[in-house]
Computed example of a mutant assay.
Amino acid sequence: MRASPQQLALAAEALLKESELPPEAMQRRFEEALDPDRWRQLVPFGSIGEEQRVGDEAAQLCEEDSAREERRLARDGYFRLHGVFDPGRISRMRRIVEAVRADGWPVAFAFVFDDFWTIARSPAVAAFLERTVGEGYFQNTVVWAHWVWGGRGAAGWSPHDDYRDSGETFLSLWIPLSDATVDNGCMFLLPAAASREVSTAVEEQRDLAPRAFRRLLQEVIALPVPAGSLIGWRGDLVHWGGANAGGVEPRLSLALEFRSRDAKASRFESPLIDPRASLPPFRLRLFAIVKALREYTKFEPVLARYLPLAERIFAETADASAAVSKAPPAS
């Protein structure tokens, strides 16, 4: 007799429960997570709290390419820019992610390191954000790193939108640390008009007519990009990570989010940080990481084994979030 979907779901939940970190391991991980020197020992070539300058690793944006992609963003809700970031820096960030993962951590913990907070602060990227999000924009504290297995059938996150009613006040940035190809599951999305059609149907809980469904399939945009590129989309675009079609290399990437200065941010996005101010302190970085981990198990169920640890770190670092929330914006 075949198991029902409900029985399979319960079995999967039980397996995930059994995979939780044992108490001794959780205590050790908790202490290690809160110790910046432990992270420095793990990644000696990474920095934490050193306010490193962008310098020779500054991003490069061609004016013509920027203007073209800003028009695309205004028209279709997304943009794609190749060859933005220094290859040496991207290689270093990839090695940080690999070291974090090899030590048994979810790869999002790479965000304890400075590189992952400074990468969008170079003058060229900051100017692009000023033009597309608005002067005095803020970064929210929703961050993530992705590791999609190499091998047929592995896939990124399922189709979703980020903040449906955000309009032009929100922009998500996605930076590949390895080549993102059709074979290893690059990003896919529906441009603005098609995304609105799909989102409305989902919200109204109605099926799409077969003709509309076939038309929307033809509007899907694939975004294969080499490592060090920069792509992004507005909050109402439906997007997803593709399925691996046989690529053997894993896909590594990171995601950041930005808000217009006067826009109302959701509770999940808070606290907002000023990209013109100092880098977020270590404890706030941990808060941002585990805040996202608690939410994103819906996309990556295997992370459920870390939830008790995430809850402890979240409670321990909540004071860092409160301190930022009460602080006035930097001038």
Rank of each mutant, 00 (worst) to 15 (best):
R2P: 14
S4C: 06
S4A: 13
Q6C: 02
Q6I: 03
A11N: 10
E18P: 02
E18F: 03
L21A: 08
P22N: 15
E24Q: 15
Q27G: 06
R28E: 15
R28L: 10
E31R: 14
A33N: 01
P36K: 10
D37F: 03
D37V: 01
R38T: 09
W39S: 12
W39F: 09
R40G: 11
P44W: 14
G46Y: 11
S47D: 08
E50V: 00
E50A: 15
Q52H: 07
G55S: 12
D56E: 14
A59I: 03
L61F: 06
S66N: 01
R68E: 12
R71V: 09
R71Y: 00
L73A: 09
R75G: 09
Y78R: 04
L81D: 03
H82V: 10
V84I: 05
R89F: 06
M93A: 09
R94C: 05
E98S: 11
V100L: 06
P106R: 09
V107N: 02
A110N: 03
F111H: 15
V112D: 11
T118A: 10
T118V: 12
A120V: 04
S122L: 04
F128Y: 14
E135G: 14
Q139E: 11
Q139H: 07
Q139P: 00
Q139M: 05
N140C: 12
T141E: 05
V142W: 01
W144G: 15
H146T: 08
W147C: 09
W149Q: 14
G150C: 10
G151D: 12
R152T: 11
A155Q: 14
W157H: 13
R164S: 04
S178T: 15
A180S: 15
M187N: 12
F188S: 11
L190P: 07
A194K: 08
R196G: 14
T200F: 07
V202L: 15
E204F: 01
Q205I: 01
Q205F: 05
D207P: 01
P210H: 09
P210E: 08
F213P: 00
R214C: 07
R214V: 06
I221H: 06
P224T: 02
P224V: 01
V225A: 13
V225T: 12
G232N: 12
R234C: 10
V238P: 03
G241E: 09
N244D: 12
S253F: 02
A255C: 05
L256R: 15
F258M: 02
F258P: 05
R259N: 13
A263C: 07
A263K: 05
K264C: 07
F268P: 02
E269C: 11
S270P: 00
P271V: 04
P271H: 07
D274Q: 05
P275H: 09
F282N: 11
A288Y: 04
I289S: 02
A292W: 01
Y296M: 03
T297W: 02
F299D: 11
E300L: 02
V302S: 14
R305Y: 10
L307R: 13
L309R: 03
E311H: 08
A315H: 02
E316T: 05
E316M: 00
A318R: 14
A327F: 04
A327T: 12
